[in-house]
């Protein structure tokens, strides 16, 4: 997998019912999020280490459809506030 260490592996989840297809997440985290043909966002990899990009995607999602979790513990790290 990744040489970055288990605590930096992240999982991103998209609530597809809530998602309205703005695509802002794909702009923030182009390596890990994309808009599918159904007009909803989806994670393009099972895990990622792009913490800053994924956190921004989650923080700025206009409908809060995205959450980012530590892969190991499931703890949510974004959005936080």
């Amino acid at each position: 997998m990744s040489a970055a260490g288990p605590d930096l592996e992240l999982v991103v989840r998209v609530d597809q019912t809530r998602c309205v297809g703005t695509g802002h997440c794909a702009a923030s985290a182009p390596d890990d999020l994309a808009l599918g043909p159904n007009g909803r966002a989806y994670p393009t990899h099972p895990t990622s280490t792009a913490r800053d990009q994924l956190s921004e995607a989650a923080d700025l999602c206009p409908v809060e459809a995205i959450t980012v979790h530590l892969a190991r513990t499931g703890e949510q790290i974004a959005p936080l506030d």
Partner: peptide, 16 residues
């Protein structure tokens, strides 16, 4: 199913 009053896509209403 959420309504489309605030639109969808990139221009989804900012102030929803």
């Amino acid at each position: 199913t959420p309504s489309l009053t605030f639109g969808a896509g990139p221009h989804h209403c900012l102030g929803a």
